[in-house]
C-alpha cells in the first residue's frame, strides 16, 4: 500500500495506520513476526494480512482494538513525527485550492518541514505531476526523503537539501512550476530567486505561509516589488466539534423534588437532606465525573448538542497569496 493508490486488502509490506484514538495513530509497515504494542496489549502484524482496510482488529489478549486504516495525507498528519509546526487539513486544502493545483501540476515547496503538506500536494498532482521540495535543515531533509521513499512518493516528490533564500532553486532538473509554496522564516528573500523556475507562459500562483504579521508586511512588499499581482492575505480559522446529547431536565421535575423534600420534612421523617439532593444531581451530571446516567440512556430526554474541541488551533499562520502574470506578449510592448 502506498499513498498513491487505493487498495482493498492488506498485504505484507503495506503501510497501515493503526488508529487507537485521534491522538494516537501509529504508522506501521506490515511485517509478519512484528508486533504493535499499546495499552491494550500486542497486535500481531501477521493477523493484519488479508484483512480489509478499515477492519477492526482485537489485541491478542482481546482487551481492546485498533482500526487498520489505509494511509491518506490527512491520517498521516495525525501520526507523523513533528519535526516542525504541521500544516493541518484546513490550511493544506485551502492552499491546494487557491494555488489551483491539479493533477499533473508542477509545484515548488520550501521548506519541506514535517512533510504534511508535501503529502497532500503529492496526492493532488499525482503521478503525472511533480513536487520540488526544499529543506535547509539537513537531518529533517533526510528524514523526509526516507518517508517519501517509504510511502512510494519518490516518483512524484523530489526533495533537495538547500537554503533556497541564499542558494535559490536551481537543480539538475529544469523546474517550470505553476505553483509555489513558501513556508520559510523569510520568504521575501526567496522570492527573487523564483523567476527562472516558474512557467512564465502562464499565471503562476504563490502562497507565503508566515506566522507573524511583520513577516506578512515584508512578503507583501517583496511580492509587489517582484511584479506579483492580486496579492491577498488571509487566515483560515478552523474549528472542530463532536456531536453529543445533553439531558433535558425540566423545572417541573425540580419542583417535584422540592415538594418531596418538604413532604418528608412535614412527615417528620428522618430526612437526610444531602442524600436526596445528591442522588438527583448525580443523575444529571453529563460531564462524566461519577456519572451514573450515561449520555443517551433511555428513560430520559436528550437534546443533540455540539461540543467544540477543547484545544483549538487559534492561529496557524497568515497565508499571503499572489499571482505572477505571464510574460507580456509582444503586442502589449
Amino acid at each position: 500500500m502506498s499513498f498513491v493508490e487505493d487498495k482493498q486488502k492488506i498485504e505484507e509490506g503495506d503501510h497501515v495506520l493503526a488508529w487507537m484514538t485521534r491522538s494516537d495513530v501509529r504508522p506501521i509497515k506490515v511485517q509478519s513476526g512484528e508486533l504493535l504494542n499499546n495499552r491494550y496489549g500486542p497486535f500481531k502484524h501477521e493477523d493484519m494480512v488479508g484483512r480489509s482496510f478499515g477492519a477492526q482488529q482485537a489485541s491478542s489478549a482481546n482487551q481492546g482494538f485498533i482500526h487498520l486504516l489505509s494511509p491518506t495525507p490527512e491520517l498521516w498528519s495525525l501520526s507523523l513525527p513533528h519535526r516542525t509546526q504541521i500544516i493541518y487539513g484546513p490550511d493544506a486544502s485551502y492552499i491546494v485550492h487557491r494555488l489551483k493545483i491539479r493533477p499533473s501540476s508542477v509545484v515548488i515547496e520550501a521548506g519541506t518541514g514535517s512533510g504534511a503538506l508535501t503529502h497532500a500536494l503529492a496526492r493532488t498532482v499525482s503521478k503525472s505531476g511533480k513536487i520540488f521540495t526544499f529543506e535547509y535543515h539537513e537531518s529533517r531533509c533526510e528524514q523526509a526523503r526516507a518517508e517519501f521513499e517509504s510511502h512510494g512518493l519518490s516518483e512524484i516528490v523530489q526533495i533537495t537539501h538547500r537554503n533556497v533564500c541564499e542558494d535559490g532553486f536551481a537543480i539538475d532538473t529544469d523546474i517550470k512550476a505553476s505553483a509555489v509554496f513558501l513556508d520559510l522564516p523569510a520568504p521575501w528573500t526567496a522570492i527573487p530567486h523564483l523567476f527562472e523556475h516558474v512557467d512564465r507562459s502562464r499565471a503562476v500562483h504563490i502562497c507565503c505561509f508566515s506566522p507573524c504579521i511583520e513577516q506578512v508586511i515584508k512578503n507583501i512588499y517583496a511580492l509587489q516589488a517582484a511584479g506579483f499581482q492580486h496579492i491577498e492575505m488571509v487566515e483560515n480559522q478552523a474549528r472542530r466539534w463532536e456531536g453529543h446529547q445533553t439531558m433535558v431536565r425540566t423545572v417541573e421535575e425540580s419542583m417535584d423534588l422540592l415538594r418531596d423534600i418538604r413532604r418528608r420534612r412535614q412527615d417528620g421523617m428522618d430526612f437526610r437532606h444531602g442524600r436526596v439532593e445528591k442522588r438527583k444531581l448525580d443523575n444529571y451530571n453529563p460531564w462524566g465525573k461519577g456519572t451514573r446516567v450515561r449520555e443517551g440512556d433511555e428513560g430520559y430526554n436528550w437534546r443533540p448538542v455540539s461540543w467544540m474541541e477543547t484545544d483549538i488551533k487559534s492561529h496557524t499562520s497568515y497565508l499571503t497569496f499572489a499571482i505572477l502574470p505571464p510574460t507580456s506578449p509582444d503586442k502589449y510592448k
Partner: peptide
C-alpha cells in the same frame, strides 16, 4: 517583530 494571535486557545 513577532506579533501573531496565540497559536492555541481554549474552546468553549
Amino acid at each position: 517583530g513577532r506579533i501573531h494571535p496565540l497559536m492555541t486557545s481554549r474552546g468553549y
